[in-house]
């Protein structure tokens, strides 16, 4: 099996890209899932890919420390954050030039919560896909059987032909910590930078025209006073409403 795992560098709220960025937590679950496939199926290779400016190499390095065999950097630097469609287009053209049996991605990025990149990669490649995967099992007949997380603890069971794209929901596994041997390997291993020739970032199909702190309309009341006064008021309220 040749597996590609898409990883995104997310910037924590209120932090700079230099100091406050890390690998998207959901992508860690995706990577862990791929690494578990590698442990089960001999001859499996796990490749981590990320698109963006130079700084995204930090998350590729992290993915290699966790156990990815290679880190692949699709270098583009437009000065703007890639939209999911743009990232998906770059990754899809990389996939076209190579051969992967499965593509894993996190169900969403924890910063922008869009849930789009994985299904978009699949649509661009015309691969079957499943999002919010909470269990998966590769079958000997080149299919994968997955459970998708739906609402209210209900799961949809889907069977997909390979190659396919799966976006992974948190909780599917416990992402591992980097092992010392992988940390040492990642330190010396080069990140693969495929030729940028012909790599075009397509035009964004939507634009963020402003961001703002959401107006908070508290619909109720805030308890005021010292901690003890608030505690007394809260207990009074709970008595009044017959909860106590």
């Amino acid at each position: 099996m040749n597996i590609l795992v898409c990883v995104k560098q997310v910037v924590l709220p209120g932090m700079s890209a230099q100091s406050g960025s890390r690998i998207n937590r959901y992508d860690e679950y995706a990577l862990e899932e791929a690494l578990q496939v590698k442990e089960r199926i001999p001859g499996t290779a796990v490749h981590a890919v990320s698109a963006g400016p130079q700084r995204v190499e930090a998350v590729l390095r992290r993915a290699m420390e966790m156990g990815a065999d290679t880190g692949i950097h699709l270098h583009v630097d437009s000065g703007e954050e890639l939209t999911p469609y743009q990232a998906a287009s770059l990754i899809a053209s990389h996939v076209r030039a190579n051969r992967y049996d499965m593509i894993f991605a996190g169900v969403m990025a924890e910063d922008d919560l869009q849930m789009q990149t994985g299904p978009m990669i699949a649509a661009l490649l015309d691969y079957p896909y499943a999002s919010a995967v909470i269990a998966q099992e590769i079958r000997p007949d080149n299919t994968v059987s997955v459970e998708r997380e739906c609402d209210a603890h209900r799961r949809q069971c889907v069977e997909l032909d390979l190659p396919c794209v799966l976006t992974v929901q948190s909780g599917i596994n416990r992402p591992r910590y980097p092992s010392l041997s992988n940390v040492l390997r990642a330190k010396h291993q080069d990140i693969i930078r495929p030729e940028a020739l012909g790599r075009e970032v397509p035009r964004a199909r939507e634009t963020t025209i402003r961001t703002f702190a959401p107006e908070l309309h508290p619909r109720g009341m805030f308890l005021e006073g010292t901690q003890r006064e608030k505690a007394v008021r809260l207990l009074g309220l709970l008595h009044e409403k017959n909860f106590l």
């Binding site: 999911p84 469609y85 998906a88 919560l113 869009q114 849930m115 789009q116 990149t117 994985g118 299904p119 978009m120 699949a122 649509a123 661009l124 896909y129 499943a130 999002s131 919010a132 998708r148 997380e149 739906c150 609402d151 949809q156 199909r205 939507e206």
Partner: peptide
Amino acid sequence: HTCIGYDLAPALAVKLGAACITG
């Protein structure tokens, strides 16, 4: 924006050459 909507919308947008705005 449910397990059907967010699953289908991004791929449908690609097929339609459309923008995709989720949530």
